[in-house]
């Protein structure tokens, strides 16, 4: 992996990094990917490959009994870095 690829990934991940860090990461990623890439060569026999039905699946609950509107609003909005009334404040998007 080269520096430019790392910078592109960082952009996709919305993480601002500098050129030096990208360069360092590119070497580290080469080592890490070489190690984790081992599994690409691992031969799995047919009975090791999982069947399509996993043992554990998400359990959904009924979408009912909502709590009273607004009781958590202040607790949640008080954590926002910027707010205006009961809205989160952001820069213009369009």
């Amino acid at each position: 992996m080269n520096k430019e690829e790392v910078l592109k990934l960082a952009k996709l991940a919305r993480v601002g990094i500098g050129e030096d860090e990208a360069d360092k990461l590119s070497h580290e990623f080469d080592a890490i990917l070489k190690y984790v890439g081992e599994i690409k060569g691992a031969q799995m026999t047919n009975d090791q490959i999982p069947n399509s039905k996993p043992d554990l699946r998400n359990i959904m609950r009924e979408d009912s009994n909502p709590h009273e509107a607004g009781i958590y609003t202040e607790a949640i909005l008080s954590q926002a870095p910027q707010r205006e009334g009961n809205f989160l404040k952001v820069k213009k998007i369009l």
């Binding site: 990934l9 996709l12 991940a13 919305r14 993480v15 601002g16 990094i17 990461l25 990623f29 890490i32």
Partner: peptide, 18 residues
């Protein structure tokens, strides 16, 4: 995210994206 996350977190977020 660049300033709030430390080096190891940035490393893993970017690796995960890859």
């Amino acid at each position: 995210r660049g300033e709030g996350f430390g080096p190891e977190t940035r490393r893993r977020v970017i690796l995960g994206t890859y």
